[in-house]
């Protein structure tokens, strides 16, 4: 229609102006659009780069935390072996020295009995170290039993009431997944024991729509997602970083929040599980 109207115009008045300004306007529009697209793309690329850098930074922090944790764990095991097992075995060796054959039979029996006691203690100590590395209950009976075992020990100490309820745990997770979930629970419980001053911990488990949920409630001083993000940027919160790096390995989501009633703190671990990943 516009073209026809222009065609029908008989008066060429101002044609030159329309042509000039029209062309300039169209060129300005075209150049403006091209520039807008270029700058927009540059901004998008810059934003993506920033995002990538932040992600790399986060990965680096998690990796450092993981390495530090491993070193601390090695130091702890080394200290346990050196300070406890070493002296015990050295004492046992003292009892069983060459002079023992020259002693009378009663002294010999006493020395052997003492050495036996010490060796039993050493065996127990090494067993404890081994259990702390890989809990046998978890390996043999699964996550539910391992968590119950852990909570029985906590409740037994009298410092806190710890309980758990597994609603849908007919099928076990894969062993490596179970170990990671257990370590996350252990670390969370450890943090609660150390920092929260809570009077109870309650863990519930659920399975829904290919997702394995672990929820942990406590009534002490807790942290929310904002605190976690703040701690992630600092060198503090090694335990939290370990939890997150384990969650990342599990491809799980972990949320720290305050309960709806604003009384309890809640941590939710959401592990994606496919049917073939579960073993009966």
């Amino acid at each position: 229609m516009i073209l026809l109207q222009i065609k029908n115009q008989s008066n060429p008045l101002n044609i030159s102006g329309v042509l000039f300004f029209g062309t300039m306007g169209m060129l300005a529009l075209a150049i403006g659009l091209v520039l807008f697209i270029i700058f927009h793309q540059r901004r998008v690329i810059r934003y993506q780069l920033q995002l990538k850098e932040m992600e790399e930074e986060q990965q680096k922090i998690l990796l450092n935390a993981s390495i530090r944790w491993q070193e601390e764990e090695r130091q702890r095991i080394a200290a346990d072996l050196h300070d406890d097992a070493g002296p015990l075995l050295a004492t046992a060796r003292l009892y069983l020295n060459e002079n023992l054959v020259k002693q009378d039979i009663n002294t010999q029996l006493q020395a052997i009995y003492n050495a036996k006691q010490i060796i039993d203690d050493t065996i127990q100590l090494i067993r404890n170290i081994s259990h702390s590395l890989m809990p046998p209950t978890l390996k043999n009976f699964g996550l539910e039993s391992a968590v119950n075992d852990l909570f029985q020990k906590i409740t037994g100490s009298g410092s806190m009431n710890a309980s758990s309820r597994f609603h849908d745990y007919r099928q076990r997770l894969r062993p490596e997944q179970e170990l990671l979930v257990f370590r996350v629970i252990q670390e969370l419980v450890n943090n609660i024991l150390k920092h929260s001053n809570a009077s109870f911990i309650h863990v519930t488990q659920n399975y829904n729509a290919d997702k394995f949920f672990i929820r942990l409630h406590h009534d002490g001083r807790g942290i929310t997602q904002a605190d976690v993000e703040r701690l992630n940027k600092s060198a503090l919160g090694l335990g939290l970083k370990n939890i997150q790096s384990r969650a990342r390995v599990l491809q799980a989501k972990i949320d720290f929040e305050k309960d709806m009633s604003q009384t309890y703190y809640k941590v939710t671990l959401e592990v994606p599980v496919e049917e073939y990943e579960m073993i009966t």
Binding site: P12, I15, S16, M26, L27, A30
Partner: peptide, 29 residues
């Protein structure tokens, strides 16, 4: 970009050309 600039810039001259191409002023422009 070449096509954008050419097609945007020639739009107005093209739509006026049929009626005014024979006029010397317009033709020059």
């Amino acid at each position: 970009v070449a096509i954008i600039i050419y097609s945007a810039g020639t739009f107005f001259p093209f739509i006026y050309a049929q009626n005014y191409i024979n006029k010397p002023d317009f033709n020059q422009e």
